[in-house]
Design a binder for these strands. Sequence first.
DNA 1: AACGTAGTACTACAGCTGGAGTGGTGTCAA
DNA 2: TTGACACCACTCCAGCTGTAGTACTACGTT
Lengths: 192, 192
Amino acid sequence: MVRRNDQRRAALVDAAIEVLAREGARGLTFRAVDAEAAVPAGTASNYFGSRDDLLTQAGARVYERLQPDEATIARQRAAGRDRETYAELMRELVSRVAAFRTGYLALLELRLEATRRPELRKVLTERVRADLDANVAYHEESGLPGDATAVKLLILALNWLIVEQLTLPDVFTEAERDQLVAAAVERIVAAE
Amino acid sequence: MVRRNDQRRAALVDAAIEVLAREGARGLTFRAVDAEAAVPAGTASNYFGSRDDLLTQAGARVYERLQPDEATIARQRAAGRDRETYAELMRELVSRVAAFRTGYLALLELRLEATRRPELRKVLTERVRADLDANVAYHEESGLPGDATAVKLLILALNWLIVEQLTLPDVFTEAERDQLVAAAVERIVAAE
DNA sequence: AACGTAGTACTACAGCTGGAGTGGTGTCAA
DNA sequence: TTGACACCACTCCAGCTGTAGTACTACGTT
């Protein structure tokens, strides 16, 4: 029987994210998730019918947790709209995502898994599209300079910058990263 | 004793890349490499002292194989230097990298592994830096428009575009990807 | 030409690790 | 009392590793 205690289920999914980030897809076993969540061995087995199941739920969960919190959104709405402020905003975004290191790394693991798992691919594709659309919509609504293409390009560049930072942190220095973010904003968004 | 047949060793490393891309880090075992390379079980064990060893060599190998061949380089040198040609060049670059799908996917797996393996991280960091520098240098030497920062931004954006294409191909259509590449060139490189 | 040697290919084995799943019992609440 | 869940323990199983043992090939020596 599949267990339905939602709190516990969420704890297990979060644990899965941590394991995924720390040990990779290789180390993601039901047992490892049990250990990470500090529940008895066998629990994850009871909650998830299959590995696929677990991975899919983890994928959805990361996106939930990557959303900025209310306070951040409010602060952003209140902020000025000049180019400098925008760059600052983007630096914050990179920091925020990079700060949830395990979540982002887990997401990369999941992307690679998605290569082999149609179900997971479907879920992730939807989330990524929604996220992209939301970003574009938010941007347009905000009245900041730059069109949809600009936003997309910015997101592309920033994403890889984060990958670089998380996986090979010594390729760029922190200063270089900041400078690249600033340049990206300046040249992509502001070049109309 | 560690075996020294270089041809066989290369075949094993190439096989490792395929396995890595197809089955992920989870499926990368000495035995799987043996099977992929169609050599007797135990061979990979004889050639590589450890998993680390195998991964490190695979990392170096992917970069070797990602270099464009002579013909491509020559053609590029002969090409015109206007913005349109440049965009075409970039589209080709994205295609070329995405065409060695397994190599690029393996590289992503390796990046994630590098998170846990200092040795591998060191190797990859060097390769990525060298690749980046080479791109910048080539670009400057070529006389095409755009400074070093522009090249870096372009590389960031293109890298993630490739990730997107390889892992979640339905997020963007092919037309969108082409359009994004064109826009990237236009706004990043040509905006001076 | 015969022989010896070194390095490699191949086969097989034996041990081991670690995960999966499940049945049974305890516990709590409706 | 009953149902759902937590917890524990146990068994089964699959797969990987490393290596010992043997055969083969190439090459150099005498």
